[in-house]
Design a protein around this nucleic acid. Structure first.
Length: 610
RNA sequence: GCGUCCGUAGCUCAGUUGGAUAGAGCGCCGGCCUUCUAAGCCGGAUGCCGCAGGUUCGAAUCCUGCCGGGCGUGCCA
């Protein structure tokens, strides 16, 4: 029987609600689950382990919340799981029996949380990453990758079957610009890419092309006739390239395939390093023609209309910009054209029930149009399409700009982060640890720093990426949480070396479990147990709200509780014996599992030691 | 102009469906390494929650209006 990894109420709240619920007058109209949902750790200190706010009962019981709290405090049976019940104003504050608390919270974690099991009918596709080939991959792209991958993992933990999808931009104007530079501005020798990072090299060509065109455009506007001529010539050439590509010109198609492959290989390498896996990769090139076919069909059906030579639809529901263009005057497709075909393809190919798009916030209007248009095309599943917007990543000096050369490329980020980690933190282990372990640890920590940094913030907050600041791995960071897990791992390792291990079968034996749990009387232990109790609810909320940031906040709080425990002289594990040893080993085992599993739901691996 | 997002401590941000004394990280000041990792722990200072109304027993949270900033807004993706 797999434990539920995602729950709307905590294990402890459920156990307490089972006792509390019968004491609440039926007139209150609260179900057992309602009561469990209303139980939460108190927000003030020294008020017990769980609090029950009586506000919602006031109306039905025709009584003031403080009085209800007081009456409940009297009526509640003590001596079982509830050790003490005190009314403090409108709150009923409960102190829980330690053995019972440990029994409710720790076994499921200590057994190991394992792999997610499908418990929900709804099959979900999450589309994310969507990089363009022939362009560089930079830090901004990492926010999308981190977010999309975390959503895939969270939705799986939540019980959904999930298809992780990527959608590569391998057609369009940017390709023509890049190939123009590659073919016309480079000599034969210069057309040989470097051995590594061919995609990044292509991105440089694209940037050069783009910058040159922008420069000519500026100069032409300022009255420079020479620039005007060059600009027109270049535009004619890029259009020619684009048209030849669409016509499947053999020579150009061969160049396109070869260069495209360089980008694809680099993307694969980046994804592998980032530990993200896609079940399906869509390409713009595969939905281009189907999109145009759809546009033609629905134009003939009268759903779409012609306007100023272009084809589109007037979505009057979007008052500030009703026209949604689906085909350009020259008959070629747009982003929107392909999105129509892609949306249908997703549902047809995978029989999904919900389709999620992780795309930055600037495209919110675009997706409103896409979904609305699909609906008008008679595609009912449009209502199950959902855009998850997120704000941009910027640099301290402002938005990233290829033209100004202010982008931080992925490879530079990775190398700087790895180098910093090895020098500033891991150098002390050199010789002691194998080079391989040091490299693997640096890798895990770099992922922790980057992904946690990208996920910790709410999606509608901008992220200012200051590389130097991101090198500081203290405080509320991925490595801080990884560190707290590593210390727990260290405790378990040393305990084992001393021959002290968790007694086999303890988690399944109620009486020894309760006896061991009852020894966890230090404040640090109690707080840690309470924090651990919140894991499944944190996962539930993050998955339902599509907000990995809330899990980050939870894990940071859990890590703080762990570190208080780990540094407390009163909570030593190795020098203990008997029930207290077992209780602490159980707590450490559970916390270790919870932290590492929780981080992994964000796509962050935890090194065994650091 | 219209749409949308943001505005909370010096800085960067949390703040569950309205509920207890608004929290955390960074930075600053002061402590803690002879026993499970100092990437850590403990203590201290700092707030007209942008402004003004409204709803409510109760508002950082909900409603309205304003102010300031970002982004989007017909042939890019």
């Amino acid at each position: 029987m797999p434990e539920a990894l995602s729950r709307s109420t905590s294990a402890l709240a459920q156990a307490v609600a089972a006792v509390l619920h019968p004491s609440i007058p039926a007139e209150a109209g609260l179900s057992l689950d309602d009561v469990a949902g209303m139980l939460a750790p108190p927000k003030v200190k020294n008020a017990g382990d769980l609090a029950f706010g009586c506000f919602r009962l006031a109306k039905a019981l025709r009584n003031a919340p403080p009085k209800i709290a007081a009456e409940l405090a009297d009526a509640l049976p003590k001596g079982g799981i509830i050790k003490e019940a005190v009314a403090t104003g409108p709150f009923l504050n409960l102190t829980i029996d330690l053995g019972a608390m440990a029994s409710a919270v720790l076994p499921a974690l200590a057994r190991g949380l394992g792999e997610p099991v499908v418990t929900r009918d709804e099959k979900v596709m999450v589309e994310y990453s969507q990089p363009n080939t022939h362009k560089a991959f930079h830090v901004g792209h990492m926010r999308n990758v981190s977010l999309g991958d975390a959503l895939v993992r969270l939705l799986r933990a939540h019980g959904h079957e999930v298809v992780a999808a990527n959608y590569l931009g391998d057609v369009g104007a940017h390709i023509a610009k890049c190939l123009w530079w590659y073919l016309d501005m480079l000599t034969q020798d210069e057309r040989t890419p470097p051995a590594e990072a061919k995609g990044e090299w292509l991105g440089e060509l694209y940037a050069k092309a783009n910058n040159q065109l922008a420069q000519w455009e500026d100069d032409a506007k300022a009255g420079d006739a020479d620039a005007q001529a060059k600009l027109e010539q270049a535009k004619a050439r890029t259009t020619e390239i684009l048209l030849k590509l669409e016509a499947r010109d053999p020579e150009l198609t061969a160049v396109w395939k070869k260069t495209r492959q360089w980008s694809l290989e680099e993307f694969d390498e980046i994804y592998a390093w980032s530990k993200v896996v896609f079940d399906r990769v869509f390409y713009e090139s595969e939905v281009d023609e189907p999109g145009l076919t759809l546009v033609q069909d629905y134009l003939e059906q009268g759903v779409f209309v012609e306007s100023e030579g272009a084809v589109g639809i007037f979505n009057e529901e979007i008052k500030h910009m009703p026209f949604f263009m689906l085909r350009k005057r020259d008959g070629t497709s747009l982003y929107s054209t392909k999105d129509l075909a892609l949306a249908k393809l997703k549902f047809e190919e995978y029989a999904i029930d919900r389709s999620i798009y992780v795309v930055d916030m600037r495209q919110s209007d675009h997706f409103k149009h896409v979904f609305l248009t699909l609906k008008k095309m008679g595609f009912e599943q449009a209502e199950q399409c959902h855009h998850v917007p997120y704000e941009m990543v910027e640099l301290p000096e402002g938005a990233m700009s290829t033209r100004k050369g202010t982008v931080i490329l992925f490879r530079a980020l990775r190398e700087r982060m790895l180098g910093h980690l090895e020098e500033a933190y891991l150098a002390k282990y050199r010789g002691d640890w194998s080079d391989e372990e040091i490299a693997q640890t640096a890798h895990a920590l770099a992922l922790g720093a980057i992904k946690y940094g990208m996920l910790n913030r709410d999606v509608n907050q901008k992220i200012v990426f200051d590389l130097e600041a991101w090198m500081n791995l203290e405080g509320n960071t991925g490595p801080y949480i990884q560190y707290s897990a590593a210390r727990l791992g260290s405790i378990l390792r040393k305990a084992q070396e001393a021959g002290k291990t968790l007694q086999a079968g303890l988690v399944d034996d109620p009486s020894t479990l309760a006896a061991a749990g009852a020894t966890l009387e230090q404040p640090e232990e109690r707080e840690l147990m309470s924090a651990l109790d919140g894991l499944a609810v944190a996962v539930h909320n993050a998955a339902e709200g599509l907000k990995p940031s809330t899990l980050c906040t939870y894990l940071h709080g859990l890590a703080k509780a762990v570190n208080r425990f780990s540094t407390s002289k009163a909570c030593k594990v190795i020098d203990q014996e008997g029930d207290r040893l077992q209780g602490r080993l159980l707590l450490v085992t559970a916390a270790n599992e919870a932290l590492r599993w929780g981080l992994w739901q964000l796509g962050i691996p935890s090194p065994a030691r650091m």
